[in-house]
């Protein structure tokens, strides 16, 4: 167990280093973008004013509010302090809303869309891949090309195909939004139904792409494992096929867990395109508006969320792997 503790501590130290680097980059990179976003709100706020001094005063007021007149290092120090208190400041493009407010309004839409879609896609994809490897024959001949097609389809392509077929032509589902625009969010059945209907296309576009990639991975891993020497040996010692299949799929599943963690970790970033196409009120759409508006505080906060989710997912993955895969466990003591 000492070996495991050292492994954990080493991984944790790397995790912290990565977080610090990522945090810094998240702060600096948006601020290197060209353009002056403050000028944009100042112009909006100063609309109708003819007094040049007044306009100048409004501009300076917002410059102070967002502290962009201070040296970047000082801004960074203040930013760290604020973030630790949970304060991400005001959004520039959606002023006077705060960043925390904008994110909390959209992040749950993304999580509710992505998380179930990834899990469902992962489970279906792995089951189909495992079946294809075990059954082979016709099932495999159909599944494999289909999976390759699905997994290579870009997210926006899949979204547009579904959009054209199911909402433009068949008119089964609405084309955009998270719920009917005529409605005010509440807990009525009408509203919930509207959310469910709007949910389907973005959900299935993500599920289908996930299924493709996972099925291909699982199929080749399972075929590899089915031909492994230990399968032959176990058979010749009279172990039941059912038990052997359990061995095979458990071993083939291990690399697939990486795929799952990867998708969950990067889900916010991955959803961007699908959310934008369906105009879904999630974090992806928020990031798009933030980037278009040069909204530094919002960009930094959203990218920070994406980075943290990915890093936590990978960290958790390494820790879990160390526990479930004896081969990695043995390597830890090196």
């Amino acid at each position: 167990m000492k070996g495991y503790r050292d492994y954990f501590l080493r991984k944790f130290a790397w995790f912290i280093v990565t977080v610090v680097v990522a945090f810094t980059l998240n702060f600096i990179l948006p601020r290197l973008m060209p353009g002056d976003p403050v000028a944009a709100i100042a112009a909006r706020m100063a609309q109708g004013m003819s007094n040049a001094t007044g306009v100048q005063a409004v501009y300076e007021q917002y410059t102070r509010l967002f502290a962009i007149d201070k040296p970047i290092l000082e801004q960074y120090v203040v930013y760290i302090g604020n973030v630790f208190r949970g304060d991400f400041g005001y959004s520039i493009s959606q002023y006077p809303r705060t960043v925390a407010d904008v994110i909390s309004a959209s992040v749950w839409w993304t999580i509710a869309l992505q998380f179930p879609a990834i899990i469902v896609g992962w489970i279906i994809g792995n089951t189909l891949g495992a079946l294809a490897a075990y059954v082979r024959k016709g099932f495999d001949k159909v599944l494999l090309p289909l999976s390759i097609f699905l997994s290579n389809m870009p997210a926006f392509g899949m979204a547009i195909v579904l959009l054209v077929i199911f909402s433009v032509d068949l008119k089964w589902f609405p084309t955009s939004g998270g719920y009917d625009y005529a409605m005010i969010p509440n807990m009525s059945w009408d509203f919930v139904w509207s959310v469910i209907v709007h949910y389907q296309l973005p959900f299935w576009s993500i599920v289908l792409i996930t299924i493709g990639g996972q099925a291909i991975g699982m199929r080749s891993m399972a075929i590899y494992e089915l031909n492994a020497d230990y399968v032959k040996y176990a058979r010749f010692l009279g172990i039941k096929d059912f038990k052997i299949i359990q061995y095979v799929f458990r071993n083939a599943m291990l690399p697939q867990i990486t795929g799952l963690a990867l998708s969950i970790g990067t889900m916010v970033g991955g959803a961007l395109v699908a959310e934008i196409i369906f105009n879904y009120p999630g974090l992806g759409s928020t990031i798009l508006t933030a980037v278009l508006g040069g909204d530094y505080p919002l960009i930094s906060a959203t990218t920070l969320i994406i980075t943290l989710m990915a890093l936590v997912a990978f960290f958790a993955l390494e820790i879990v792997y160390g526990l479930i895969d004896p081969r990695i466990k043995a390597a830890q003591s090196d």
């Binding site: 230990y230 040996y233 010692l237 038990k243």
Partner: peptide, 28 residues
């Protein structure tokens, strides 16, 4: 019974020796 040529990979890498032996005995 049988001893395979490639004993290096004859055991399931994710199963302890005793669990594998248990599976063998259980099968009979």
């Amino acid at each position: 019974s049988y001893i395979p040529q490639a004993a290096m990979n004859a055991l399931n890498p994710t199963r302890r020796v005793i669990n594998f032996i248990e599976d063998v005995i259980q099968a009979h």
